[in-house]
C-alpha cells in the first residue's frame, strides 16, 4: 500500500530507457517517503528476459504480466492491468514515460481511477501543500513540475485528494543509475486473465514497425540545433557539417528538447521559445548564434555570437579545423 509505482515500457523484450530513468527517480521518491518502489511490466514472452533490465534500479517488487496480446501495446489490456492492480495495491504515486504509449495509457488509467495526471513533468519533488480555499494541510505530496502555456511558464501541480498521483516524464529528462542501496528485488507473475477482460483485446495491430533511431541525441554530448531562423536547406547542410567536425549530432528544435541535456548545445537561429529552453537549459555550455542580440535564448547562453548563421557557422568550422590537432 502507498508505494511508488513505475510503469515499464517495452519494445519486445527490450525495456525502454525512459522507464529505467523513472525507476531511478522513483527510487529517490520512495526513499524520501519511506515506502517501496514497485514496477509493473506487461508484454508477451517477457518472463526471464526483462527482469535484469528492471530490478537493478532499486525495485522492491516487480509485477510482470506475461501473456498473448500484451505486445504490441494496445490501450485496453494495459489499462485493465494497471487499473485493477492499482485497486489492489493503492499506490500513492505512479510514473510513466511521456512516450506515445505513456501518453495513451496514462490518461486512460487516470480517468478510470479519477486520479490526477500531469503530463511531461520536468521535475518531481516531494513537499507540503496548503489549500488556501479549504484551509487543509497536506504532507508529502508529489510536486509535478512542468512547463505550461507553450512553455512560457512553469507550473507546480499537486493532486491533494486523489491517488495515485500520476505523472509522465519525457525520455532523457531524468538520469538512470544502478541503485547502490539494498532493494528487495521480489518478482511476481500475476495471472493476466484475472486482470484483463477478454473484450479488452479488441484493437488489432496489423503491422508494427519500429526503426532504431538514426540519431541518438541522448548519447551525444554535442548537439547542434537549427530553428526557424535557418531558412534554407543549405543552412541545415551547414549545421550537419559543423556537427560532423565536432563529432556531435544535429537536432531540430523539438528533438533536441526531447533529448534533455548534453555537454554543449549550439543553437543556430533559434529565438528560444521557452519549451525549447526548458529542454536544453541543463546543457553544460550553450552557444547561441543569432542575428538578433535580444533573442530570448541569449539570456541563458554562455556565449552569444551576434551574426547570421550563414556567416558564423562556416567560421566555426574553419577555426575548429585550424586549431584542433
Amino acid at each position: 500500500m502507498n508505494n511508488v509505482f513505475v510503469y515499464i515500457e517495452t519494445e519486445g523484450t527490450q525495456v525502454a530507457e525512459v522507464s529505467q530513468e523513472l525507476l531511478t527517480k522513483g527510487r529517490k521518491l520512495a526513499d524520501q517517503l519511506d515506502v517501496e518502489l514497485h514496477a509493473v511490466v506487461a508484454g508477451t514472452g517477457i518472463k526471464g528476459k526483462v527482469e535484469d533490465q528492471i530490478l537493478p534500479y532499486g525495485v522492491d517488487k516487480l509485477f510482470a504480466f506475461d501473456g498473448e496480446g500484451l505486445f504490441p501495446y494496445t490501450s485496453a489490456p494495459h489499462t485493465d492491468i494497471l487499473v485493477n492492480l492499482f485497486k489492489e495495491e493503492q499506490p500513492q504515486i505512479c510514473l510513466m514515460g511521456a512516450t506515445v504509449i505513456g501518453r495513451d495509457l496514462g490518461p486512460r488509467v487516470s480517468s478510470s481511477l479519477t486520479s490526477g495526471l500531469t503530463a511531461d513533468c520536468t521535475q518531481l519533488e516531494i513537499g507540503d501543500f496548503d489549500d488556501v480555499k479549504t484551509k487543509k494541510h497536506y504532507d508529502n505530496l508529489l510536486y509535478q513540475i512542468r512547463p505550461a502555456f507553450g512553455g512560457n511558464i512553469v507550473a507546480t501541480i499537486v493532486n491533494p485528494d486523489h491517488r495515485p498521483q500520476m505523472a509522465t516524464v519525457r525520455s532523457g529528462v531524468m538520469q538512470k543509475a544502478i541503485y547502490e542501496g539494498k532493494a528487495k528485488n521480489e518478482v511476481v507473475y500475476p495471472e493476466v486473465s484475472k486482470y484483463v477482460s477478454p473484450e479488452a483485446y479488441v484493437v488489432k495491430v496489423l503491422d508494427h514497425h519500429v526503426e532504431a533511431a538514426k540519431h541518438n541525441l541522448k548519447g551525444s554530448p554535442i548537439v547542434v540545433a537549427g530553428g526557424y531562423g535557418m531558412g534554407s536547406k543549405e543552412g541545415f547542410d551547414m549545421l550537419f557539417e559543423l556537427a560532423k567536425v565536432l563529432h556531435g549530432e544535429v537536432g531540430a528544435s523539438r528533438a533536441a528538447v526531447d533529448a534533455g541535456f548534453c555537454d554543449m548545445y549550439i543553437a543556430c537561429g533559434i529565438s528560444g521559445q521557452i519549451q525549447h529552453i526548458a529542454g536544453m537549459q541543463d546543457s553544460k555550455i550553450i552557444i547561441s548564434v543569432n542575428s538578433d542580440p535580444d533573442a530570448p535564448i541569449n539570456k541563458i547562453a554562455d556565449y552569444v555570437i551576434v551574426g547570421t548563421v550563414e556567416e558564423v557557422v562556416p567560421k566555426l568550422i574553419k577555426y575548429y579545423k585550424q586549431n584542433s590537432k
Binding site: 501543500f129 511558464i153 507546480t156 499537486v158
Partner: peptide, 30 residues
C-alpha cells in the same frame, strides 16, 4: 483532481553571457 500549487514565470537563469561578434577574431577566440 489536479490543483495548481504555484505558477512561475520562466525566469531565465541568466548566465554571465559573453557576447561576441561574428568577426574572425571573435569566432577563433571562442
Amino acid at each position: 483532481p489536479t490543483k495548481v500549487k504555484t505558477v512561475q514565470n520562466i525566469v531565465f537563469q541568466a548566465k554571465e553571457s559573453k557576447t561576441l561578434t561574428a568577426s574572425d577574431a571573435d569566432v577563433e577566440g571562442l
